[in-house]
Design a binder for these strands. Sequence first.
DNA 1: ACTCGGGTAGGACAAATGTCACGGCCGACC
DNA 2: GGTCGGCCGTGACATTTGTCCTACCCGAGT
Lengths: 210, 210
Amino acid sequence: MPRDHRPAKSVRVLLAEDQGMMRGALALLLGMEEDMEVVAQVSAGDAIVDAALVHRPDVALLDIELPGMSGLDAAAELREQAPDCRVLILTTFGRPGYLRRAMEAGAAGFLVKDGPVEELAAAIRRVLTGETVVDPALAAAALSAGPNPLTARECDVLKASADGATVADVASRLHLSESTVRNYLSSAIGKTGTRNRTEAVREARQQGWL
Amino acid sequence: MPRDHRPAKSVRVLLAEDQGMMRGALALLLGMEEDMEVVAQVSAGDAIVDAALVHRPDVALLDIELPGMSGLDAAAELREQAPDCRVLILTTFGRPGYLRRAMEAGAAGFLVKDGPVEELAAAIRRVLTGETVVDPALAAAALSAGPNPLTARECDVLKASADGATVADVASRLHLSESTVRNYLSSAIGKTGTRNRTEAVREARQQGWL
DNA sequence: ACTCGGGTAGGACAAATGTCACGGCCGACC
DNA sequence: GGTCGGCCGTGACATTTGTCCTACCCGAGT
């Protein structure tokens, strides 16, 4: 029989983060807040939506780089399947393209894992009031950087080339001719203003375009 | 006048971690342990030794990838300048080469950031008793993988090639002839069993050889 | 003294990569 | 209907990359 010694724990939060220690630490911290309760923890991106449907969190705290499914894609799905759940992206890298995609996916906030821990609970409370929380400097960078100039196919080819695959590898993996792969690579190199595929991949990653 | 309501906080720990949120969260968690006190937090590798000399921690919790100086190099320096401070490496990647280098640098333990938070305080207590703490599976992997087959120069060239630099770039950066650079790259590719420099860099990174 | 491994370098060659000009197909937009 | 951009492809070409062989210097070990 709960005798209600504890305060009301009014904020239900879902935590998606693949690093166990980070996930555990954040869960403990948030649990210490008087009004917050971590109702679900997941370590894979494709478990987010399911967990949200079951546990009905008020806010989902999502890492971007997750096994299974990107936190950004999960955010977009949450928007449809659990529209009353606010999404707060929590990521290691403040890439302009990530921020842009997060906003397009309907995220209510975007936090980088630098910055003090206190920001976290504060940000959660702010998004719950309807506020949108992003680092102003980061927002400016995202705006000034402009949108992703790469076509979907160019991104595919860059991603497939990222681990050192040869043109032949990429061609067979994507069911394209080698000529086509080289054309896409060449144009991606041109658009990124780089000198070879390695630099192009690097730059595209840096911008959050992959 | 301290009236000693609190327990004795007998364990002094130094925390080196570049990610602000992670650092803050860990500091809070450790501070909640009855017997532990975080006496110093640093975010750069080259601040570790100084902080240790000032605050005299019993144990230093070091990330590996840090700005300024690697946590592994810092561990080696601590061994000399603060020999009574135990070193516990805490890293994202359980690379065999990292573990090997950590042991050679005199670390008393090696933890990966996966795994539950509870492991952390437990590991700290165990290294303080003189025990060496490493994940057995990881230790086996490190042993079976064998030592780094790359020479110092081959590592240098790989590192310099990592960001997509051309042979000419690397040659001028390292004051070598282009022929020499190509020779080193070729032999590194051979030793790593890969097909090109990108894969070689990838593999060497994976093994913790860079 | 001799060998051996590492660092450095040149040259020659084959393969992979990057560039460019060209073409066809489609869907969207005016 | 026409235009435009994205997708897919070919062929030719210059450049870069990767391989192999040779060679010299040096320090460590036998």
